[in-house]
């Protein structure tokens, strides 16, 4: 009798300990996680708060100054957008086309497995490797110097494997019954892909595009090597052979090498602008998707 009582007592106390452990450790996990999010959000908030109030239209479209205070980042912002658009124009058709081939046409053999492996590996190759290639090709071999054109093409190359992979995944996830329904209606494979598969895979592909766009927008190593550290100094310069420094490179330049008097303010404003632009970019790519999901 007494033995049983102690046994019971021991069991309940072990239960208590387990419960206590459970609560304690889960509490620690929750605190650490919330602290991480708090720190990251606080950092972003600091950036935006320091920079945003001082951003005005002159800063956004005005030309930069070498020595005096009060310069803008107009040409760099313009170059960022211009290079981003050019590189996306170059990489989207080829990347998505390659994704379609891999998902729909490719035979299931060893060579294709190898190609997939190669593309996946190259999707996470350090951007500096692409930068070196672009530098050797455009600056050394073609002798055209640091240009917007070279930077856009090199960025497009960086993004191609990622795009191919993401679209392949999104397309493979489309149920095959949908395709069969389309074939049954007499559609060819091309019609099926364009009218059935791609719209169904839209969400995955757009998420990939937003990822790639943010990556291209924030890329600095490639731009530094192939696009240079300065710009033509003029706004709305469509010329493909102008120097192609973008906002991220400008932020690095201002922070580490610039002589301009208000370097610190420019750096603060530029980084706030970068964060806001990236948020805006993910927003405009995903917004239509979000809207169409809402409607359903």
């Amino acid at each position: 009798m007494n033995d049983q009582a102690t046994l019971l007592h021991e069991k309940t106390s072990r239960l208590h300990i387990r419960r206590l452990m459970n609560r304690l450790i889960l509490g620690v996990v929750i605190i650490i996680s919330l602290a991480v999010f708090f720190v990251i959000l606080a950092l972003l908030y600091t950036i935006v708060k320091k920079g945003l109030p001082n951003i005005n239209i002159h800063f956004l479209i005005g030309p930069p100054e070498e020595i005096d205070a009060g310069g803008g980042v107009g040409p760099f912002l313009w170059n960022s957008i211009y290079i981003l658009v050019l590189s996306l124009l170059l990489s989207l058709p080829i990347g998505i086309g390659a994704g379609i081939f891999l998902a729909e046409y490719a035979p299931n053999n060893r060579i294709m497995e190898w190609v997939r492996g190669a593309i996946e590996s190259l999707a996470s190759v350090p951007s500096i490797v692409f930068g070196l290639f672009g530098y050797a090709l455009f600056v050394e071999y073609f002798q055209i110097g640091v240009t917007i054109l070279g930077a856009s093409i090199t960025l497009a190359l960086l993004n191609l494997p990622v795009l191919a992979r993401v679209s392949e995944e999104a397309i493979t996830a489309v149920p095959s019954t949908w395709k069969e329904a389309s074939f049954a209606l007499g559609a060819t494979k091309a019609q099926t892909i364009i009218k059935t598969v791609l719209p169904a895979a839209k969400k995955g592909i757009l998420t990939g595009v937003s990822l790639v766009a943010c990556r291209a927008f924030g890329e600095s190593a490639i731009i530094l090597l192939v696009g240079g550290t300065s710009s033509s100094g003029q706004m709305w310069d469509f010329h493909l052979f102008s120097e192609g420094a973008t906002l991220p490179v400008h932020l690095w330049y201002i922070q580490s090498e610039a002589l301009v008097a208000d370097a610190q303010q420019i750096a603060e404003k530029t980084s706030a602008l970068l964060v806001l632009m990236v948020l805006f970019l993910s927003f405009i790519v995903r917004f239509p998707l979000w809207l169409s999901q809402r409607k359903k």
Binding site: G95, A98, F101, A118, L157, L160, K189, A190, I194
Partner: peptide, 27 residues
């Protein structure tokens, strides 16, 4: 059109492979 589309997609893969191969080789 169907065959042309297939050809375009195949072309994209070949282009992708060639360019990336070129980068690795060159480096």
């Amino acid at each position: 059109a169907d065959r042309f589309f297939r050809f375009l997609c195949l072309g994209s893969v070949i282009f992708l492979g060639a360019v990336l191969g070129a980068i690795v080789l060159f480096v």
